[in-house]
């Protein structure tokens, strides 16, 4: 056991949110210097589902937003990744992709705010959807350009020489073969969108309520218990997706 003291410590610190947040959300009273809650309650969760019209509409908006963004961005990246896979300017494409992908979302949103307001989509669900698509799109393309490597291109050619039409090659071979990669990209972009705070805050102008923004509101109101309950909801989908897809995770802190 002593041999593993260091990794155990690292694991313990890293998974702290998964232990602490559920505990805090169910704590009746947990004040300094108690190491554990003095009493337990389900009151904060009840409040979470009741306050401001309840959390469920917000969760629904978040799911819809992240689902649509992930679907569109994955599909667009998959197609464009294929079309650009053999491009001689791949390096340049990746450099541009990195630049856009690494840009701070909140500053990106402020850069575009004017155009979104002009187009009349500031403060709307489609506006937030579009801005998220624009920011996550380069990630998706870069991911799929790498995916469409030598093997996948060879597989496509094999289909053609076996007599498959473009449509048959895609429907019967390339799409089914790519299912794991598509799933990974979908989950990943879903999580990026689910985490997003800055883009939605600026482009949504407070009129598009996602779970992140609502949890932030609870934090700002100084109510740690209900903020903890909301945070649990925020953690849950990514943790489940992570479980389904742990080998293929890319990062975006």
């Amino acid at each position: 056991m002593r041999k593993y003291a260091v990794p155990i410590f690292i694991v313990a610190v890293l998974i702290l949110p998964f232990l602490y947040l559920p505990a805090l959300s169910a704590a009746g009273e947990w004040k300094h210097p108690s190491l554990l809650p003095v009493s337990w309650t389900s009151g904060h969760w009840k409040r979470l589902f009741a306050a401001h019209g309840g959390i469920m509409p917000v969760v629904t908006v978040s799911f819809l937003l992240s689902g649509i963004v992930a679907l569109l961005t994955t599909a667009a990246g998959f197609l464009l990744g294929r079309l650009l896979a053999g491009d001689p300017g791949r390096r340049q494409i990746q450099a541009v992709g990195y630049l856009a992908y690494a840009f701070s979302p909140v500053i990106y949103a402020y850069c575009l705010q004017f155009f979104f307001l002009k187009a009349g989509i500031g403060g709307t669900f489609p506006g937030v959807l579009i801005v998220q698509f624009l920011l996550f799109f380069p990630f998706s393309v870069i991911y799929f350009i790498s995916y469409w490597g030598r093997n996948m291109m060879a597989l496509e050619e094999l289909c053609f020489t076996l007599g498959a039409s473009r449509r048959a090659a895609w429907m019967q071979a390339l799409l089914p073969v790519s299912a794991p990669a598509l799933r990974t990209a979908f989950f990943q972009i879903f999580v990026f969108s689910w985490f997003d705070f800055g883009l939605t805050q600026v482009i949504g102008q407070g009129r598009v309520s996602t779970l992140s923004l609502t949890v932030w509101q609870y934090m700002a109101e100084g109510d740690p218990y209900i903020a903890a309950a909301g945070s649990c909801l925020l953690l849950l989908p990514p943790a489940i997706l992570m479980l389904m897809n742990e080998k293929n995770i890319r990062f975006r802190p």
Binding site: N151, A154, L155, E157, L158, F160, T161, L162, G163, A164, S165
Partner: peptide, 14 residues
Amino acid sequence: PQERGAVYLYQEPL
């Protein structure tokens, strides 16, 4: 390629 009736096989059996 679909209409040539020429099947191309790679070094790696794909």
